[in-house]
Amino acid sequence: MTDPLLPPSVDLPARLLRQTSLLLNHASARANRIVSQHFDGPGGRMHYAILAGLSEFGAVGQAEMCDRLGIDRGDAVAALTALQASGYVQRTPDPGDRRRNIVDITHAGEERLGDLDSMVDAAQDELVAPLSTEERQQLNRLLRRLIERPGVT
């Protein structure tokens, strides 16, 4: 499945092609299309982020999880409800503050995360297919430098 970055009719002037922000915007749009096509249902990206975060961070307060992942708390509620209904996460009241929910990934959630990892890996391979292994690693390093906070590695 090949997804061109720009339709054949688009012919951008050289001064636009020098704009890193424009190139990142078009690459991001392409990446979003490719990843969405590889997920097997709606909400895949949010579900993947939540399951990956819980797998790495462990049980955490629902609000803290959203803050750490950079996702809107309101958007996360529907995703968490769907994940819980599927048996992939469990939400329990925080014994120290009953108004707070603690979210944790289940064994089934870890298995689902493995399935989603495969989908994401296939999407990543499609996205960066024109690049060598070294170029892929360099691109990843450079993009991380653009998004990471100074002093944080």
Rank of each mutant, 00 (worst) to 15 (best):
S86L: 10
R18A: 12
S55F: 11
V77N: 00
Q137P: 03
D11M: 02
L131A: 13
V60D: 00
A14V: 15
L127M: 11
V103G: 00
S118V: 15
L80Q: 08
P8F: 01
R100S: 06
I71A: 00
P42L: 12
L80H: 04
P8Q: 00
T153C: 09
V35G: 03
R33F: 11
Q84C: 06
A129C: 08
L51W: 05
R68S: 06
R100G: 01
R145M: 14
A14Y: 09
T2Y: 11
A123T: 07
L22E: 02
T2W: 08
A122D: 08
A29M: 09
M65K: 02
R141W: 07
A82W: 01
A129S: 14
H107M: 06
Y88R: 09
Q138H: 12
I147A: 05
A82N: 05
T20N: 00
V103P: 04
G43H: 01
A85D: 09
D117N: 15
R68P: 07
G96P: 02
S132H: 04
N101H: 14
P130V: 07
L146E: 09
Q19P: 02
E64D: 04
H26P: 06
R45V: 12
P93G: 00
Q124W: 13
E56H: 11
T106E: 01
M46V: 11
E126I: 13
P150S: 08
E135M: 09
L143T: 14
L146K: 12
D104L: 05
G43W: 01
T2S: 08
E56C: 06
L127K: 11
L146G: 13
N140D: 04
L24H: 12
E126D: 09
R98D: 13
H26V: 10
D11H: 07
Y48G: 03
Q90G: 04
A29L: 15
A123I: 13
L51Q: 08
V128P: 03
A76F: 02
M119R: 15
G151H: 07
R99V: 06
V10I: 15
R73H: 09
V10C: 04
V77W: 02
I71V: 13
L51V: 10
L69Y: 02
I105E: 01
L5K: 05
S118I: 09
I34A: 11
T92C: 08
M46F: 06
I50H: 03
A78Q: 11
G61V: 09
L69N: 02
I147W: 07
G70M: 07
E126H: 06
R99M: 12
C66R: 07
R145H: 10
L6N: 10
Q84W: 04
L139F: 13
V120R: 13
S55V: 03
D72N: 14
T81V: 15
R18E: 10
R18I: 10
V103T: 05
A27K: 06
